[in-house]
């Protein structure tokens, strides 16, 4: 019963994409037709979640420039992936602005040509021998996370006749409980493919789209090295229950 004196701000299901979004065709047969059953009294089952502080990470788990070298002995540019070098960083905070420390942030992406290192991806663009496309880290005690990577390329997919994904990085955040679990995608500020993407268009509200856009941050960019994109993640706000429920 140790966690039952808290709860989370209700998830606004009109803000998130609906399950059934016919413009994104795969959702048609994969969306429940029944209503979700609401749990008015959240229990310890929903109000707890895993704490990954003891998950042992490798030294380059958050550095995609170095974590998939074809040959670790290769020096300099010969062992680095092709593409625009970027830092992707930001803060995980809750809806009240409170930092979410020591939470697991995971990300995955295509290479600079828009090709994923995945058995099922058969796109024409080549694999990069020095790029895997996966990263993970824990936020620090102020909720900050950072990755170093290359900017992924856009790529075509079989939704419409000629449909392209904007450049994006998939992002997964755990937060303090399974109630705050969130998987999203970061898009890049100014990309003309964003407004015509059927997956982005699963959202009804342009303001919701804005929450998924990484912003160029020149101040954090490193001269003669890499640009920086800031992407803050907001998870559900934690509320305390101060009064007895009787």
């Amino acid at each position: 019963m140790q966690h039952d004196n808290k709860r989370y701000v209700e998830r606004d299901r009109d803000w998130h994409p609906a399950a059934y979004t016919p413009g994104y065709k795969t959702s048609v047969a994969r969306s429940p037709s029944q209503a979700l059953v609401s749990l008015q009294a959240p229990s310890v089952s929903e109000l707890t979640g895993p704490d990954f502080r003891r998950l042992r990470m490798g030294p380059h788990d958050n550095d995609l420039l170095l974590n998939y070298r074809e040959d670790p002995a290769l020096a300099g540019a010969a062992g680095l992936p092709v593409g625009e070098r970027i830092i992707m960083f930001g803060r995980v905070i809750d809806q009240f602005g409170k930092p979410v420390p020591h939470t697991l942030v995971e990300m995955w992406q295509a290479n600079a040509g828009g090709r994923y290192r995945h058995k099922k991806d058969a796109y024409l663009a080549p694999l990069d021998p020095n790029f895997g496309g996966v990263g993970r880290c824990l936020t620090d005690d102020q909720g900050w996370y950072r990755f170093r990577t290359i900017k992924p390329g856009p790529y075509p997919w079989g939704n419409g006749i000629n449909t392209w994904r904007p450049a994006h990085i998939h992002v997964s955040v755990m937060g303090p409980a399974i109630s705050t679990r969130l998987v999203t995608q970061m898009y890049f500020e100014g990309d003309p493919l964003i407004p015509i993407c059927p997956i982005v268009q699963t959202l009804n509200d342009q303001e919701a789209v804005e929450t998924m856009i990484g912003r160029l941050d020149m101040a954090r960019s490193r001269p003669m090295d890499c640009l920086a994109y800031r992407f803050d993640l907001v998870v559900r706000g934690e509320l305390q229950t101060y009064f007895e429920n009787q």
Binding site: P17, I93, D94, Q95, H170, T184, Q185, T202, V234, V235
Partner: peptide, 8 residues
């Protein structure tokens, strides 16, 4: 604040 929106 609004929660970051979900994507597939």
């Amino acid at each position: 604040l609004r929660e970051t929106a979900s994507q597939t």
